[in-house]
Structures are given as structure tokens and as C-alpha cells.
């Protein structure tokens, strides 16, 4: 069985089977949060794991996606679902505009520029109160899918609906990322990660491909932001905050930035941790920082690939 098929089967099985072990409704909520985060982190896998570029501002795109769902239905009359797509297009457009000059330059420039971009988006969301209602947040209209299901006779609780819907979107996101991995574009991205100069010599337009990865990953983050806003029916500028960007990167490198299943693992660990450890709140930054440093020093490939290597080594 190919890695791709195995990954998709495992993810689908997790979404479907886990509810049988849920002691209460609350777990659906945690589950859907994990799926949303995993979706965003899958985008980071494409950018960082495949193409080897670092963004420290992807929460900015989540912010754009989230606020698109809050604002576009009111101001543009868009259906909330369409608003999510509108947000994704907007995020992709911003990523394209900002990424184009930057991705021609050396590695750390993207990290710095995206850090600035994320801060800028968070700033706009918090300060332009006439539009966004400021730091306290704004309510988001209902997606309406739940009602539509009810109309055709499927009665499902709201938390459960969002659990399965987020799970579905995550699996589709994983499928696309896995398609990309083995496609000519994905191969070119991994090639330029391996050796930029050799990639250029075989005819790969390095700047253009990096830009594609950046735009795609921005769309993932944006859709994750939209999903979060739609299921909470509320959103605050925190979604675009610097710490959220850092969380995304940490989830990716923890699980294994090169692996879609690793993205899920990283998202699952760092999403459940605060729920399990109530003291986590106070130590969150310390823990995130430690995880980032330790993983990069001792397990550069991340948890999942390192473990897989160890298991394979034992078999031999």
C-alpha cells in the first residue's frame, strides 16, 4: 500500500472511529479543533516540509479567512460558505503579492517578512473597529449546512456536525497535499529544498515554485481560519496573533514537517495538551519554545519520521 493511501485511511479511520470512545460531547469539540489545526498545519507541511521555507505569519491568513466569514456575508451579501472561498482567494492574493519579491531572496527573508505581515494583519483587525469591531471580536453567521441536513431528515447535533465536517475538510486537505507530494510540482518543491542550485540547473523556476507553495499554504491557513470562525460563530483578532503563527510552525516541526500524518500528530498533541494540563496556560510559551528548540536539535525530521526510522531500523 502506498504511503498516500495509508495516510488517508488512517486519517479517515481516526475521524470515524474516535467518536465511539468519546465519553462526552465536549470531545467532539476538541476533535474538531484538532482537525482545523491539522488543516492549517498541512499547509505548513507544503511550505516548510516540501519546499523548505519558513513562515512566521501564517496566522495572518487564518485571520483573513476567519474575518472574511464574518464580514463578507454582511457587507457583500455572500453566503458564509462562499465567504470562506472569498477569504481563501484574498489570502492567496496577499500571499502572492507579498511573496513575489521576497521569495527571490535568501531563506530567512520570508520568515521576517511573513512575521511582519502577520503582525500587520492582526493590527488591522484589532484597530479598524468600524469594520471589525476591534479586539473584542465579532459574530459570524451560521453556515446553514446543519439546517440543510436537517431538512433532508439527518438530525445531527451542532458539535457533532462540526466534528465530522472539519474532519472531512481535513481529509480532503490531506488528499490534496499528498497528491502534490508525488506530482511534478511537489517533486520540484522537494528538489529545490534538497539543493536549490541543482533544482535551477534542471530547469526549475525556483522563485515561482516557492511562491506557489507559499500561496497554497496561505489558502490552507485561510480555510482553517474560516472553519474555526464558522463553527465558533464568533472570531477575535487573536486568531491572527503571533502566538498562533508560532503554534502552527511548532505543530508542523513537532509532528514532522515533511509528513502529512506528522502534521496531524503535531496538531493533535499541541491541541490536546492545554485541555489536559490546566497549568499549561502559564507555561504555554515556555513549552512551545522548548519543543521548537529540542525537536530541531535532536529530531530534525520531527516525531513521526524519526519514530518510523527507528521502527524500520529495528526490523532490519
Amino acid at each position: 500500500m502506498t504511503t498516500k493511501r495509508a495516510t488517508l485511511l488512517i486519517l479517515a479511520a481516526i475521524v470515524i472511529v474516535s467518536p465511539f470512545f468519546f465519553p462526552s460531547n465536549y470531545y467532539y469539540r476538541v476533535g474538531s479543533l484538532i482537525f482545523v489545526n491539522a488543516l492549517a498545519v498541512t499547509g505548513i507541511v507544503i511550505l516548510t516540509g516540501y519546499a523548505g521555507q519558513v513562515s512566521l505569519g501564517h496566522a495572518g491568513f487564518a485571520g483573513i479567512g476567519g474575518y472574511a466569514c464574518a464580514l463578507a456575508p454582511v457587507h457583500l451579501g455572500l453566503h458564509p460558505g462562499l465567504a470562506a472561498l472569498f477569504g481563501a482567494a484574498l489570502s492567496g492574493g496577499v500571499a502572492w503579492l507579498v511573496g513575489r519579491p521576497i521569495l527571490r531572496l535568501r531563506g530567512y527573508y520570508l520568515a521576517v517578512a511573513s512575521l511582519g505581515l502577520g503582525i500587520l494583519v492582526a493590527m488591522v483587525l484589532a484597530n479598524e473597529a468600524w469594520l471589525t469591531r476591534g479586539p473584542d471580536g465579532i459574530e459570524v453567521p451560521d453556515l446553514g449546512l446543519n439546517d440543510a441536513l436537517e431538512a433532508i431528515g439527518i438530525d445531527i447535533r451542532n458539535t457533532q456536525f462540526w466534528y465530522f465536517f472539519s474532519g472531512l475538510v481535513m481529509v480532503v486537505g490531506a488528499w490534496i497535499a499528498l497528491n502534490l507530494h508525488d506530482s511534478p510540482t511537489g517533486r520540484a518543491l522537494r528538489a529545490l529544498h534538497g539543493s536549490e542550485i541543482a533544482a535551477r540547473v534542471v530547469g526549475i523556476d525556483v522563485a515561482r515554485l516557492k511562491l506557489r507553495a507559499f500561496v497554497i499554504s496561505a489558502v490552507y491557513a485561510s480555510l482553517a481560519g474560516s472553519l474555526l470562525a464558522l463553527q465558533n460563530k464568533f472570531i477575535t483578532p487573536d486568531v491572527a496573533g503571533f502566538m498562533h503563527s508560532i503554534e502552527m510552525v511548532t505543530m508542523a516541526v513537532l509532528g514532522g514537517a515533511g509528513s502529512v500524518l506528522g502534521a496531524f500528530l503535531g496538531a493533535a498533541i499541541l491541541t490536546t495538551l492545554p485541555q489536559v494540563l490546566t497549568v499549561f496556560q502559564e507555561y504555554e510559551q515556555i513549552l512551545l519554545g522548548l519543543v521548537m528548540m529540542l525537536v530541531m536539535i535532536f529530531m530534525r525530521e520531527g516525531l513521526l519520521p524519526s519514530l518510523a526510522r527507528r521502527v524500520r531500523g529495528r526490523e532490519k
Binding site: S183, R187, A191, A198, G203, I204
Partner: peptide
């Protein structure tokens, strides 16, 4: 060498110009 890829993938990468196509089709 693209150390992060298999031997076959390294060789396939050489075909980039002929094998690349629309991004959407790849996704």
C-alpha cells in the same frame, strides 16, 4: 544531489521541464 529524495526521484527531477503541467492538475 537531492538528498531528501530517492534515486529514482532524483532522476525524474531531471525531467522537470517535460513533466510539469498545470498546478491544478497536480493538486
Amino acid at each position: 544531489i537531492f538528498q531528501n529524495m530517492t534515486v529514482l526521484e532524483n532522476a525524474v527531477a531531471g525531467f522537470h521541464l517535460r513533466e510539469s503541467g498545470p498546478l491544478l492538475a497536480d493538486l
